[in-house]
Design a protein around this nucleic acid. Structure first.
Lengths: 188, 188
DNA sequence: ACTAAAATTGACTGATTAGTCAAGTGCTTT
DNA sequence: AAAGCACTTGACTAATCAGTCAATTTTAGT
C-alpha cells in the first residue's frame, strides 16, 4: 500500500525531475500526490527536506537493484554492462538524468543539496569502478587505472544524456555510448 | 560605455548562470544592474525575453572569438585545440557550463528555451566538427566520422564539467579531458 | 469502550513574485 | 527655445509562494 509519505516522495521526485527543485511548486506536488498541505508538514519540516528525502530515497532504491548483477555475474561482465548502457527503454531523454539535473541546478546554490549530490554522484562512480575492477580481476580487462576509467565513463554517460536532451534526439545518446564502448574495449 | 541594456544583459546572464532561470530573481537582477524595473520593461517585454537575449548574445559574443583561431591556424591545429581544452583558467567549475545548465533546466519546460539551446548546442558541436574536419583536410588526422567524433567530444567535455561541479574537484575535469585527448589521438 | 497519539483538514499569514503604469527627466532635432 | 522622443522613476497590483496552526478525524493500544 502506498502511504501518504510514499505519495509525497513519489510526487516530489517526479515534480522535481520535471521542473527542477526551484521550479517545483509545492501546491502542484500536493495536488499530484492528493495530499493536503498540513499532512505534508506533518511528515516533513519543509519543501527542501522533502525534496532531499525524495531524491535520496528514490535514487537509493533504484541503485540497489541496478548494480546487483555485478556481484552475482561471473562471465561476460563488460558485455552485460554494455547491454545495459545501450538499453534506452528506461531512459527519459526529455527530462534527462535526474541526478545531473539536480547537480547542475543546486550544487552551487545550497550546501545540503551539494553534500547529497556529491554522495550520490560518488556512489555512481564507484559502482562503475567496481565493474571495471571486477573485469580486471576475472581477466576480462587488462589492469589499468579503473578510477580514472570510471570517471571518464560516468562523465561521458552524463554528457551523452545531456546531448540527447539538448538536441531532442535519442540517437545522440546511442552514438556517444557506442564510441565510449569502443574506447573501453581498447583497454582489453 | 556600458548602456542600461548592457547592464541588464550582463546582470541577467550572471544571475541566471548562478541560480538558473527559474531561480533568478528579477529584483536581484535589477539591483545588481543598478537599473529600475520600469527601465527594464522599456527594453524587454518580460523576464523570459530578457533571459533569452542575455543567453543568446553572451554566448554569441564569446564564441565569435573562441573559435576564430580555427580559420587562421594552419599547423598543429589539434595541439592548439588540446591546449585550449586543458586550460582551466577561464572555467567556473562551481557554476559549471552555462549552456548545459540551461539545457538541463529549461529544454523540457519551455519551447523557446528549447529552440535557443538547440541552436547554441548545435553551434558548439559544429564548431568542434570544423576543427576535426580541418585536421583531416590538412592531414593531421586520418579521415573518420567527424560528426560522431564531435558529438562524442562535446558530450564528454560537458560531462567532464559536470563531474567537476558534482565533486567540487577541478582535477576531475582535467582527468577526463586527458582521457578524451588520448581517445582522439587514437584517430590519428 | 476509552484514551492517546498519529494523521488529516483547509483556512490563514506574510513575503515575494513578475508585471503595470502614470508621471517625470533629459537629450536631440528642428 | 520649443517640441518630441527615449528613457527613467517608483509606487502599485494581482498572483503565487512556502509555511502555520487550531480543529477534527482516524488509528492503535489497553
Amino acid at each position: 500500500m502506498e502511504t501518504t509519505r510514499d505519495k509525497l516522495i513519489n510526487a516530489t521526485f517526479d515534480e522535481v525531475f520535471s521542473h527542477g527543485y526551484q521550479g517545483a511548486s509545492l501546491s502542484d506536488i500536493l495536488a499530484k500526490a492528493g495530499v493536503h498541505k498540513g499532512s505534508m508538514y506533518h511528515f516533513f519540516a519543509n519543501k527542501k527536506e522533502m525534496a532531499l528525502a525524495a531524491i535520496e530515497e528514490t535514487v537509493l532504491n533504484r541503485n540497489i537493484e541496478k548494480y546487483r548483477y555485478v556481484e552475482t555475474y561471473t562471465g561476460g561482465l563488460l558485455e552485460e554492462f554494455y547491454t545495459r548502457l545501450r538499453d534506452t527503454s528506461e531512459r527519459d531523454f526529455k527530462r534527462g538524468c535526474p541526478i545531473a539535473n539536480i547537480v547542475q541546478e543546486m550544487s552551487n546554490i545550497d550546501e545540503e543539496f551539494n553534500v547529497l549530490m556529491q554522495s550520490i554522484y560518488g556512489e555512481f562512480r564507484s559502482n562503475v569502478k567496481a565493474i571495471f575492477d571486477k573485469a580486471v580481476t576475472v581477466g576480462e580487462m587488462k589492469p589499468c587505472d579503473t578510477t580514472k576509467l570510471a570517471l571518464f565513463t560516468t562523465s561521458t554517460i552524463e554528457g551523452a544524456i545531456l546531448s540527447a536532451k539538448a538536441t531532442g534526439n535519442a540517437q545522440d545518446y546511442v552514438d556517444v555510448i557506442e564510441e565510449l564502448i569502443t574506447h573501453i574495449e581498447g583497454k582489453r
